[in-house]
Design a protein around this nucleic acid. Structure first.
Lengths: 220, 220
DNA sequence: ACCTGAACACCGTTCAAGT
DNA sequence: ACCTGAACACCGTTCAAGT
């Protein structure tokens, strides 16, 4: 065990690899935000120089795509036993949770061509919609409806909580400004949020969409 | 008329102003993409040096926020005569159209504290939901549901059309890869899009959400 | 009051040189 | 095979100097 320590002048740094770089990038993005994630900063974090990263990663864009796909991989796959619509619901909730763990991911989600994990996710969702017995056209629309809901809701929520963490004063000033300008409905709405009256809008609207699809299919 | 020409050595450039800068920034973003929009590039486009912009705009972030609010201003306000739910539907469609005209706007939409135009938009939507007679809790959820739908759908659509314009080859390669990897449902889904079988998913799902809210309210 | 040159502290990326 | 110093062509922003 002790022999290992004498191998290199800088024993603390781990050997570079694609996986190590992606993992470190996610760590930096989680703790300091994506805007703070530069190739130079990331390399320093790993104990190397910026240019070394290019031996394992072709691009910053490609790195960002890999980070997004790593988040998609966290979602996991649906239970084989569950009825299709239940599985769809679980997938949506699990995706939302994974995106919530990495606040930068939702903003990058659509920026790049999907990797294997995100493609797997989408393929599973399409399969479940198919298995649910919905008419093909409704399944097609359902795919977009569910995706939109998950991503849109997550973005909106992250936006709002980001506003409350970093910009406490800014939100206060915004509410004050809205009050002065007479945006009364917005003041009331933000008030509901600040009062914590936000019951799970995500799952309510998700069910509204899923139930609506089933109903449309029955009326067909 | 001719006298004017002798006033300055560079008569072609228009006097700088906040409005002129925002308008030029939108023009650059529309034609070359947001990523190409730098303070230096924008200034050159206007015939000035980068530092001159800071006499009229405090920040690049503030400039981006103003651009987004200018897009929000394009949406216009709902007709006073229409029934609330009809007006809500028109607002959603109009917002989608405005975002479609400026593909960069959807990505920036949630990045900054809303300006007066976007606040007006949100306040109008909340008012209409209130006037529709929905239970307050359903109105609250409906606000998020509609916002999510409009933004999410637009992002998803822009993503896909961007993929087809710039990255024709990339999409082809992606489909080929998916075929090889056995993501059969995704291959079929993308095939439906490429075949132009995309009937208006946006309005169908929007109605599904609005009808669902009304139904939930009736069951209350 | 408004414009700007020079400067500061950064970027992503290439390339030739090192081991 | 992998790491890196120097360099290139950029960034946003500040500040003092010009008019």
């Amino acid at each position: 065990v002790e022999q290992r320590r004498t191998r290199s002048a800088r024993p603390s740094r781990v050997p570079l690899s694609r996986a190590a770089i992606v993992a470190a990038a996610i760590e930096v993005a989680d703790t300091e935000g994506v805007d703070a994630l530069s190739m130079r900063r990331l390399a320093r974090h790993l104990g190397y120089e910026a240019m070394s990263l290019y031996n394992h990663v072709t691009n910053k864009d490609e790195l960002l795509a890999s980070m997004v796909d790593a988040v998609a991989a966290e979602v996991g796959r649906p239970d084989a036993g569950e009825p299709p619509l239940v599985a769809i619901r679980s997938m949506a909730v699990a995706t939302r949770e994974a995106l919530g763990r990495h606040p930068w991911a939702a903003h990058l989600w659509l920026r790049s061509v999907p990797g294997s994990a995100r493609t797997r996710l989408m393929d599973d969702l399409l399969r479940l919609l198919d298995e649910s017995g919905l008419a093909p056209e409704l399944a097609h629309h359902g795919f977009h409806a569910v995706n939109n809901h998950v991503l849109g809701y997550t973005l909106q929520q992250l936006d709002m909580s980001a506003g409350m963490e970093n910009l406490d004063a800014a939100v206060g000033a915004y509410v004050e400004w809205m009050t002065a300008e007479g945006y009364s409905h917005m003041v009331a709405h933000v008030g509901q949020h600040l009062a914590g009256e936000t019951t799970s809008s995500f799952e309510l609207v998700l069910d509204l969409i899923l139930d609506g699809l089933v109903r449309l299919d029955a009326e067909r």
